[in-house]
Design a protein around this nucleic acid. Sequence first.
DNA 1: TTTTACCCTTAAACTAGTTTAAGAAATTAA
DNA 2: TTAATTTCTTAAACTAGTTTAAGGGTAAAA
Lengths: 194, 194
Amino acid sequence: MKAKPLIEHFETYLPFEEAEISLIESRISRRKLKRREYIMTTGDICRHYTFVVKGVLRLYGIDPTGKEHNILFAAENDWIADITSFHDTKPGKSNIQTIEPSEIIQIAQQDLYHLYINIPKLDRIFKVITEEKYVELQNRVFQNISSTAQQRYSYFYEKYPHLASRLPNTQIASYLGITPEFLSMIRKEIILGK
Amino acid sequence: MKAKPLIEHFETYLPFEEAEISLIESRISRRKLKRREYIMTTGDICRHYTFVVKGVLRLYGIDPTGKEHNILFAAENDWIADITSFHDTKPGKSNIQTIEPSEIIQIAQQDLYHLYINIPKLDRIFKVITEEKYVELQNRVFQNISSTAQQRYSYFYEKYPHLASRLPNTQIASYLGITPEFLSMIRKEIILGK
DNA sequence: TTTTACCCTTAAACTAGTTTAAGAAATTAA
DNA sequence: TTAATTTCTTAAACTAGTTTAAGGGTAAAA
């Protein structure tokens, strides 16, 4: 059953019946991606919610000078989408790309709306998921406005050890809002026990 | 009807019937607050979702050195709550305080859960509200990691002109993650057309 | 109406983070 | 297995933002 990892994810929130599972199964697609493959680039309309079965993806924006900035990472059992673009069905500003070879499950807009109508508890589940993600982002904003780069790195390292050890430092630096050079310095200082 | 501003807010998402409105009316409380009054301080459990009828409130955190950092503002027709604390019914780290004399509508945890069960579309509405707020926060994170303080100030000024003109600069500086002194410099440079 | 508290500004010295450049180490492709 | 590319590191010169301190303006409280 291709939907299995997704159902297991949903069932960490609420239980599902067979009929519901079959309906979900019929409305998703699952596929494999190579390293550095894109599922969305600037100007595309984001037409899917993407659930990560295996691997890591990043969502990044590009500033007026052309530099990339990582807005979020999504690894196993996490979601990724350009919500603004998805919601309004209009061209988005983001890019979504694999960092490792990955496997994903996607739900298209129409299918998701169909599922919301037929399985109302999905409204509840996505409400809770979005609240959880909102809280994470709020913590990140607090870090950004209140901490030094070193503190932000330590926080990231403690909170997402599986990501911190898995991602190239350039990607982490981009996420933290600093240069890779400065991250290198920070890491040296942390090792020296500063 | 004390719930009127709240119902009008909900009806920007979906229509409501009389019975539903009465149920909501019976499950909320409305009150007035003085300037600088707190509805939550660090260590409290956040037991309400608060809707702002009139005025402005801020939610702020305190860093290890004791400094305050504004995480968000909420003015008319906006929501404010320490979601982490509310969700898990555990002591929160935030403080929520009025900046101006304000009027609010509050929904207590139990009442909100009761409303979710009896009016399922509220799950849908709060899902959408949370998604909207998530997107706003994501844009703010992008600003924080990709822009200078001057660009962040300009963005804030354009996106929230009603707040920018209404709030003391010290509060705006705290929200932007810079010192009031540096904000003062930035404003001078902007006026000089830099 | 006077005082107090708050809010904003300016400027000089300082610190955190960036940029540029060059080379070493690790991965990936051929 | 080697070549090519990406990633990481170090260091010096630079720029963005903070700190400290002092003073002026304005709103609120007594």
